[in-house]
Design a binder for these strands. Sequence first.
DNA 1: TATTGTTATACTCTATAACTATA
DNA 2: TATAGTTATAGAGTATAACAATA
Lengths: 145, 145
Amino acid sequence: MDGLAQLTFVVQGALGRVAAAHEISVVQARLLGILRERRPSIKDLASFLQLDKSSVTGLVDRAQDRGLVQRTPSASDGRSVHVAITARGRELIDRVAAAFERQVADLVIDLTPAQQRRLSVSATAIVAADAQRRGIDIFEIDPAL
Amino acid sequence: MDGLAQLTFVVQGALGRVAAAHEISVVQARLLGILRERRPSIKDLASFLQLDKSSVTGLVDRAQDRGLVQRTPSASDGRSVHVAITARGRELIDRVAAAFERQVADLVIDLTPAQQRRLSVSATAIVAADAQRRGIDIFEIDPAL
DNA sequence: TATTGTTATACTCTATAACTATA
DNA sequence: TATAGTTATAGAGTATAACAATA
């Protein structure tokens, strides 16, 4: 199963090149990807990304400085903020995601369609099982959204 | 194929936790993994890791400071050095690799043995095709080794 | 002249600890 | 008291540009 580790470096490399071509980091791209459909708190993000909350503060700071995300105070908890993607952030992540799709297609081009399908299914199953195991139920969309 | 990106985050997360438990970073672990069977130059490493040579200098510096690797001058080229793993480095990467194996086994535990096998085969095929495409023929073992 | 490696510098990402404000 | 978030600080990782030594 060492091939799996190597594969993650290859895919992360592809992700890194795509992100760099759009002048963002892989982590920033991941953040924007999460925010496409959610408006999580800093704490939610820390749990989802498995990072310390102070790391998330910095991550969101830099994205906010570039106009990619916005903080809005929580209506129900005065201590909390919700992080939302901006129109500009959404436009950027859409372009990055499309470019990444093309890169991944190139990466798996030598596999048969059936192999590609099985790979996708297995990948999704592993991710879902892992999320369940660590209790990171892909958090709910904010009802206020 | 977005599942593939998610999968890389999950696997990299597992790698990160294993590495952290042994007090090294994922990149340092990757470096040591490469050096298990090779004695590359800084340039070779930069090409293999797809990093700038100055980044590799720093990477090797930190590993050397911890006694995990050693630089030795090249016999054939006065400008070049070869990076070799030390006994201590080898002992460390052996433990990390074993722990990582166990983590990956846990990750794929819900897949059938056949699915696991196909995943491994596909992963290896993608890695090999990518390496060939970018001309990174997993460089030769140093004849002087 | 070109290549190999290092150094200087700057930025991102990350964690720990201490802090503020709110619950 | 406990929790959400920020700030201060430190260290790893990365790149660019300039440099020294060798080819």
